[in-house]
Each structure stands twice: as C-alpha cells, then as structure tokens.
C-alpha cells in the first residue's frame, strides 16, 4: 500500500510540472494551447535521444526544456504574427511535432534501460521528483509576482490594459507560451526517464489530463483560503493520480483511463458550478414537507 501512495505522489508531482505549464496558458493566458500534446512527447524524445547518445542526464533534461520552449515559441508566432486563431495554431504545432518527434527518435519509441538517467543515483526517485517539481512551482510563483508576471496575468485578463501600458501583448503571449511548453516538455522528459522509455504516442490526452488536474484542484482547494493557484494545480495533479490509481485498483483496465479522465473533468466542472450537488439534494429531498411547501412548479 505504501508503494501505491509513493507511486501516486511520484506521478502526481511529475505530471504536476506539466499541469503548471498548462495552467499558464489555460488559466492565466486564457489560451487553449493544444501544442502541449506535441511538446510533452517532444521533451521525452529529445531526452531519450540525448541519453542514447550518452549525454549527461541533467543536461539532456535541460535541452528538452529549451526545445519545448522553442515549440511554444512557434505556436506563439503562428498566433501573434500570422494571426491564426489560438486553437488552430496549437493544433498545427501539435500535428507538426508528431512527425518531428518521430524524426528525433528515428522510430516510434526508445527504451532507456541501460542509460543513465536523472534517477540513476542512490536517492529515491520521489526526492528527485519533489526537488524538480517544487523548484518549478516556486520559480513560477516568483515569476508571477514580478512586474513581468503581472503583465502575463493582465494579458489574459484584459489585453487592452496591457496595450494601454505601452506593451506589445504579442511578445508577452509568445514568452508565456514558451514557458508553458518548456515546462510541459520538462515534464515529458522526466516521465520518459522515470518509466524508462519514450514513446511518440505518450502525449495523447495530455491536455485533458492537465485540464482535469487544474479543474479538479480548483474544485477541491478553492474553498481553502490562501492556497496559491500553483499549489492548487500541483494538488489537482496528485488528486487526479489518486483517482485514476484507485480506478485501476478497482479493476478497470488501463485502456479505460481516458474515459475515466473525461468523467473526472465533467464531475469536477459540475462540482465547480455546484450543479450536480444541488440537483442531487433536490431530488433526494422531494416528498413530504418540501412538496407541500413548494408552490413553484418543479
């Protein structure tokens, strides 16, 4: 059982870095960025090919981060300079990255059994993962509290205000997208080293997983005061992993996970709007007093 929980925490924090990235675009920038579906396996394929070439695992992970940023930069360029809608520019980059990932790896997947990874040291993987993801979280917290971070927040909130401040919102958007995709690629690189293989298809459903975690985290933690949004995102990622972990334990086959993810998003969104809880209460409490006292039609 302890192993089960350690596993969940490991995965929760690892994917949590990806959730932080999705949080930047989806929540702060109000930009539904689908390119993360491509930049997640991009991080994995870059790190895998670098490791196979015998590179230092930390350097390889850093390169994955930088290459992810470049992918985000392309999405931003398509949207800002070529005026392609945000959804479509993400989709175009995602589709393009699929081929690029195959080119980087040369085949559909690379196993990493013999290679040294960031986890090839006496430390338990959970500590490595914790260090990585908490560093990212605090770095993001710091960034969002700077003058530049304010600009990113305001760009998502009210682009007109940023223009009024004499700032080109295009540049702010591109930098935010780069950061977001960099984080997602970093997460992909970690996951690939953790599970010891990189696969070209490992990005499918990543955006939904990210959204599920963000929405889930918000639904649960928003009633608790003084919880930072980044903490909510990380917490949501862990909660998400707990739910899917239990679903697997209950005997659902792993192939059902995507359906479970979709259901989680629906449930969390419903909880957020309080609709589900409300209706349940109403149907359960029909009868007796409530029917007699109820003068309105139901």
């Amino acid at each position: 059982m302890l192993n089960f929980w350690v596993n969940i925490l490991e995965q929760g924090f690892m994917f949590g870095v990806m959730v932080l990235g999705v949080y930047i675009t989806y929540k702060i920038l109000d930009f539904p960025d689908l390119s993360v579906e491509g930049s997640f396996p991009l991080g994995a394929s870059v790190v895998a090919s670098c490791l196979v070439a015998g590179m230092n695992p930390f350097l390889a992970t850093f390169i994955a981060f930088v290459v992810g940023m470049m992918a985000g930069g392309i999405t931003g360029y398509l949207h800002v300079k070529l005026k392609i809608t945000n959804l479509l520019s993400g989709i175009l980059v995602m589709i393009g990255l699929y081929s690029i990932n195959l080119r980087i790896m040369g085949k559909a997947n690379i196993p990493l059994f013999a290679q040294k990874t960031v986890f090839s040291n006496p430390m338990h993987p959970i500590f490595m993962i914790l260090i990585f993801s908490l560093c990212m979280k605090f770095a993001l917290d710091f960034l969002l509290n700077t003058k530049f971070g304010f600009l990113i927040k305001a760009t998502g909130d009210n682009p007109q205000l940023v223009t009024s401040l004499g700032i080109d919102i295009g540049v702010t958007k591109i930098i935010a997208l780069m950061l977001s995709n960099g984080l997602v690629a970093l997460s992909g690189a970690m996951v690939a080293q953790y599970q010891r293989f990189a696969d070209v298809g490992m990005g499918s459903g990543i955006i939904v997983m990210g959204l599920a975690s963000i929405i889930f985290g918000e639904a649960i933690f928003k009633r608790v005061s003084l919880v930072k949004a980044t903490t909510m995102a990380l917490g949501g990622s862990i909660l998400y992993k707990i739910v899917t972990g239990f679903a697997l334990k209950l005997g659902f086959p792993p192939t059902d996970l995507k359906l479970i993810t979709a259901v989680i998003v629906v449930l969390a969104l419903g909880l957020n709007e309080k609709k589900i809880g409300f209706k349940l209460k109403k149907t359960l409490s029909i009868g007796g007093d409530s029917v007699v006292m109820h003068t309105k039609s139901m």
């Binding site: 960034l143 700077t146 003058k147 530049f148 971070g149 304010f150 401040l165 004499g166």
Partner: peptide, 19 residues
C-alpha cells in the same frame, strides 16, 4: 495595488523585479 503598480510602471521596463 497590483493594478496601480502596473500602471505606475508604464514606460519603464517590466522586468523580473518585484511586482
């Protein structure tokens, strides 16, 4: 205060100093 601070910074660099 965050809004005012942004407005006050107009014309200067929006760098990595405290918001």
């Amino acid at each position: 205060i965050e809004n005012l601070s942004m407005a006050m910074n107009k014309g200067k660099r929006f760098g990595l100093t405290k918001g």
